[in-house]
Design a binder for these strands. Sequence first.
DNA 1: ATGGTCGGCAACCGA
Length: 257
Amino acid sequence: MLRIATYNVNSIRQRLHILIPWLKENEPDIICMQETKVENNRFPSADFHRIGYHVVFFGSKGRNGVAIASLEEPKNVKFGLDSEPRDEDRIIVAEIGNITVVNTYIPQGFKVDSEKYAYKLQWLDRLKKFFEKNLNLDSLVAWCGDMNVAPDDIDVHSPDKLRNHVCFHEAARNAYKKILEMGFIDLLRKHHPNERIYTFFDYRVKGSIEKGLGWRVDSINVSKKLADRSIDCYVDMKPRLAERPSDHTILVADFEI
DNA sequence: ATGGTCGGCAACCGA
């Protein structure tokens, strides 16, 4: 069995009390993390090494930051897109075993009428070109991350109220779906086509979990060859219900490999 | 949901 997970940690240093026990208990082969919010020279590598994980990362002071921890040593690790601004703190590509793993923290976009949203839309287009140039979707590929896009109505609690939100706006959804159409299978939807399953519950919304006011903005998208081997894809809510949680849950996919 | 709560970092910005 192969297990891949993705987790927006919202500060890796503030999430070790959840993350490390979760890794020990669930033993994923690979976990992609976003919003590590720590510079490289302060990344807590030793906490991963102590429990048998390799870890690669790229972070900036106070914001963004991505990391991949894995049982096998990652090879050909690359940070950033291939054009400026490369945003090395938003994308990692690595070969782990026979799988190409991509970990993205896609820009959130602030407001639809802002420069930041224009940047998000450009980033999605640039990511598609990057994938066209650098990925072979006939091989085993897993694209994980905080996509900051809820692809369909089923992926948000109140679709009609949220159409002008940067994570549910039509332009972002279309740009994101164009990438999926290159040949990715959205694993949560493969296994749970009609269920409302969320990966994010805003800290600021009182009772968001109890009221079901969530979003599915984190995904594990894989090439067909890898999807053919998937057993299930599911959210683990326990980390979101723990003390001092991230506002994201952990998304997990299991494969028979 | 239209305010709220976190995190980083030391005043506010980002989500």
